[in-house]
């Protein structure tokens, strides 16, 4: 969770399970309508765009677009479930990606956040623009043609109040119908306030394995281990997520869905073995791409 959200809402009390259905219903209807309109408007100018296919949603594969190719993707990530109360946060990202060279791809993201919190002393229901991201990927080795695929990744995000930098080492290998991926991720965040600057460091590892049952359909498993170092000093929070991923593509569009429940809280306050203070009970990510 970002520093801003933590500072604003802290630990959330009260009645999570009983109200989850209500939360999802009320928050999502309006959000999905807004998302659909936004996606349609933003996609319209990308007449030659082509979306690449992603078998995983948390793990990148060592792939980049060919030179001069364009891509459009829409991301939606739901994080839901805290220690108490109702909590659901949607991260929406609209991406335009362009191949500068056959090995180098850049992308621009528009980020939005929808937050719904319902607790005794406070109700929050908001939807806001969360800034821009610039992404750069360089492919060193191909996951099929070379012994192992290697890609370097850099991303900078700002909403003009805080800055986040993210670096990834992406490894992967394709064995005919089997796809393997491993990412090592380092993320730094600076939140600029009047008197002081809050900082945070996160170190994350993700891995995925998938099998392509047909040319159109793949089923896999993704894992994610996250470590959070507030003030970039001591490790205070860590958790592991594990769940299935499903991919389907046609010649015109593709979609990948991952359901990632938290399976273990490794560091920090835990409840039933989960860290629900810093992280959520479950995450769901959907990425949808359209070929034009």
């Amino acid at each position: 969770m970002s520093l801003a959200v933590q500072a604003r809402f802290g630990r959330i009390p009260a009645r999570l399970a009983a109200r989850m259905r209500k939360t999802l219903g009320s928050a999502l209807g309006k959000r999905w309508c807004a998302l659909g309109v936004l996606a349609a408007v933003l996609a319209a100018p990308a007449a030659r765009a082509r979306a690449d296919e992603r078998v995983f949603t948390y793990s990148y594969e060592p792939k980049v677009l060919p030179k001069d190719a364009l891509e459009f993707e829409q991301w939606a990530t739901l994080r839901a479930g805290k220690e108490d109360g109702v909590f659901s946060r949607w991260d929406l990202r609209t991406e335009f990606e362009y191949g500068l060279l056959d090995q180098l791809t850049t992308a621009l993201y528009l980020n939005f956040e929808s937050l719904h919190i319902d607790r005794d002393e406070e109700q929050v229901d908001e939807f806001e623009f969360k800034g821009l991201s610039s992404e750069w990927k360089w492919k060193f080795l191909d996951p099929t043609a070379d012994p192992i695929g290697v890609l370097g990744y850099f991303e900078a995000t700002t909403n003009f109040e805080d800055v986040e930098l993210e670096e990834k080492l992406v490894l992967g290998k394709n064995f005919d119908r089997v796809v393997l991926a491993f990412n090592a991720i380092c993320e730094q965040e600076w939140e600029f306030e009047n008197e002081e600057t809050e900082t945070e460091l996160a170190v994350e590892f993700t891995a995925g394995v998938a099998y392509r049952f047909t040319d159109r359909f793949a089923l896999g498993l993704e894992a994610r281990e996250v470590n959070v170092f507030p003030d970039m000093e001591n490790l205070e929070h860590a958790a592991v997520f594990l769940g299935p991923t499903l991919h389907y593509n046609t010649n015109r569009w593709w979609v990948t869905l991952t359901f990632l429940p938290q399976v273990a809280g490794l560091r920090g306050d835990t409840q039933d073995g989960l860290n629900l203070d810093e992280f959520e009970r479950m995450e769901v990510r959907l990425i949808f791409g359209i070929h034009f």
Binding site: I148, L171, K173, F182, F205, A223, L266, R267, D269, T270
Partner: peptide, 30 residues
Amino acid sequence: MLRYAPRRSHEIRLAFAALAGCIGAIATSC
């Protein structure tokens, strides 16, 4: 409240490292 689970944490990180190692080992042998 469980504050810290060092052994499990260590084992899970080892599992991730082992998976990365497996990808590398399998890949370099083909």
